[in-house]
Amino acid sequence: MKSSCRISFLLLSTLLPLSGSLYAADYVIDTKGSHASIQFKIPHLGYSLLLGRFNKFSGKFSYDEKNPSNAGAEVIINTASVDSNHAERDKHLRSEDFLFVERYPEARFVSTGYHSNGDNTGILNGNLTLRGVTKPISIDVRQIGAGKDPWGGFRRGFEGHTKLKLSDYNINFNIGPASKEVELGLYLEGIRQ
């Protein structure tokens, strides 16, 4: 009898540290319904802003309402899907001057940790791999909302913003001194699995 109690206690003490992560829900980013987008913005010669997006990407994230620090995300971008609303410019963006999509068809972000500010905002840290270079980045995140959808599912949405220094990823094409960094905006709606 004592040994069965001891085994139960050991099993319980082993599981307790994991119990925080048991409440995390997993979500798939809804790209099929076009309820997600990845956009970019960069100064053009210092005179205006050039806007664009990536039309093809996929990903997933997890979120635990009781312990937001357990949040995590992974996003894979098809770099050839870059779209700045100008065919010739997009061809140049796909070339080795910029994204070099022939050699590097994907960019990938994998989170390494999340710090919650306690007010539906936080900082998502992780590694971004672009043009074969992996660098740590931080994304300022805001939860937009969560709840049931009209199709019987449950959704949760976030927006995130970060800036990337182009030269960190071996993008050294000179487009002017005001255009050394690009701002990324991620607007992600996930469907709970």
Rank of each mutant, 00 (worst) to 15 (best):
A73F: 02
D90I: 03
H44R: 12
K91Y: 01
E102F: 06
D140F: 04
P150F: 01
M1C: 05
H161P: 00
A71S: 15
S69G: 14
K135G: 13
P17F: 13
I175A: 01
S3Y: 13
T134C: 04
F54M: 03
L188D: 12
K66P: 00
P177A: 06
F154Q: 09
K135T: 11
F173W: 14
Y63L: 03
N127G: 04
A73K: 01
G72A: 14
L124I: 05
N172S: 05
I175N: 00
N174L: 06
A24Q: 04
D140G: 07
E189C: 02
A80L: 04
K32I: 09
D83M: 05
S4G: 04
G33C: 07
V110P: 10
V82D: 09
S4K: 09
R103A: 09
A24M: 04
A73Q: 01
R103D: 09
D119T: 06
A107R: 09
R155Y: 07
S84N: 08
F109S: 02
S62A: 08
L11A: 14
K180V: 12
K66M: 04
R53L: 08
V101A: 01
K135L: 11
N67P: 00
G152H: 07
P150Q: 00
C5M: 12
G157N: 06
K163N: 13
I191A: 10
T79C: 11
D168Q: 12
G145F: 08
L16C: 13
P177G: 13
D97Q: 12
I144P: 08
R108H: 15
R108V: 14
I175D: 00
S58G: 15
F109H: 05
K32L: 11
E183H: 07
W151R: 12
S37F: 02
G52N: 12
A73M: 14
H161I: 02
K32W: 02
H86P: 00
A178T: 11
D168R: 08
D26A: 05
G176R: 04
A73N: 03
S48A: 13
I171V: 12
D140R: 06
F98V: 10
K60L: 04
E88W: 02
I191L: 11
Y23E: 13
K135I: 11
E102K: 15
Y169A: 13
E65I: 04
R53K: 15
P17M: 14
S179I: 00
G52E: 13
K163E: 15
R155S: 07
E74M: 06
I123S: 00
A107E: 11
A71F: 05
K60R: 09
H35N: 15
V141I: 15
